[in-house]
């Protein structure tokens, strides 16, 4: 029995690892297949329709613009407040422009956009595909001769790869405007001058850092949402659980990926 007490958790850990690996493999397969269908699917009677991509772009991208702008504007303003108060303690207010510019473009723009889109669209992918799975709509796609990955996953992936970086650029802009509105009066310049100073402070690689993160975030959010959706069993309750799980898991992975990125890019 004492042995059992040791073996049970090990057993459970082993099973957990195995299922995590299986999931990773499954998500990887979806990624590979989506790319395959997007590139050469049309040659094999499985085209990824531009109309489907545009529709996804609207849902994940265009519809998210107002909330992304609002949130990143607010965060920009907050960063401005914090940096001004922190730097003023040792009379280094002039560094505020630089600090805001770099932290927004390298970090916060992409992260805030990623978290928002994970909440909006990652959950929507999981819910939509999950409920299609439960009602046999995914089976119906198969028997009609439509590969579900081509029809459901590929358009979402392409749309996310385009829209998440785009949203990130918008978020960067809104955050810097937000910071400008608070900081410019404190620094005794006009907001326009503040923004010009920001543009001077920024290097190309700051922007790239944020954008390359957002590409990785797009892949994470899409794959987690979609593979969770395809894995749904157990009716409406299962769909609900999958939705929650997709959001929690994708935000967790997103933050970890962000940390890893920041670590390696800033050494």
């Amino acid at each position: 029995m004492a042995l059992d007490a040791i073996l049970k958790p090990i057993n459970r850990l082993g099973r957990g690892t195995a299922s995590a690996l299986a999931e990773l493999g499954y998500a990887g397969a979806i990624l590979v297949e989506s790319v395959y269908f997007a590139l050469v699917g049309w040659r094999h009677g499985q085209p990824v329709r531009p109309a489907a991509i545009v529709e996804q772009m609207r849902q994940v991208g265009i519809d998210a613009i107002p909330i992304v702008l609002l949130l990143s504007f607010t965060v920009g303003l907050m960063l401005g407040i914090q940096f001004v108060s922190a730097f003023s303690e040792f009379n280094a207010e002039s560094q505020v422009v630089m600090a805001v510019a770099k932290s927004v473009t390298r970090e916060f723009g992409a992260l805030i956009t990623g978290i928002l889109v994970a909440g909006r669209s990652g959950s929507a992918f999981a819910a939509r595909i999950g409920s299609m799975n439960v009602s046999q709509e995914v089976d119906a796609l198969y028997v009609i001769g439509i590969e579900p990955v081509r029809y459901l996953a590929a358009p979402a992936l392409v749309a996310m790869l385009v829209m998440l970086p785009t949203l990130t650029v918008l978020a960067n802009t809104a955050a810097i405007v937000g910071a400008a509105l608070y900081c410019a009066p404190v620094l005794e310049v006009s907001p326009v001058v503040y923004i010009i100073q920001t543009l001077h402070a920024l290097e190309m690689r700051d922007i790239w850092e944020g954008l390359s993160k957002s590409v990785v975030f797009a892949v994470i959010i899409t794959l987690v949402g979609i593979s969770t959706g395809f894995g749904v069993t157990g009716g409406a309750e299962g769909v609900g659980r999958a939705t929650t799980r997709a959001v929690v898991l994708s935000i967790t992975l997103l933050v970890v990926a962000d940390m890893v990125f920041s670590f390696f890019l800033n050494r």
Partner: peptide, 23 residues
């Protein structure tokens, strides 16, 4: 092969228990 399966699928119709219409 997937091409053959696709050719087969065009010759099969299925009506699922719950209908499985795309909502």
């Amino acid at each position: 092969s997937s091409a053959e399966v696709l050719r087969l699928r065009r010759q099969m119709g299925v009506s699922f228990q719950g209908g499985a219409l795309f909502t």
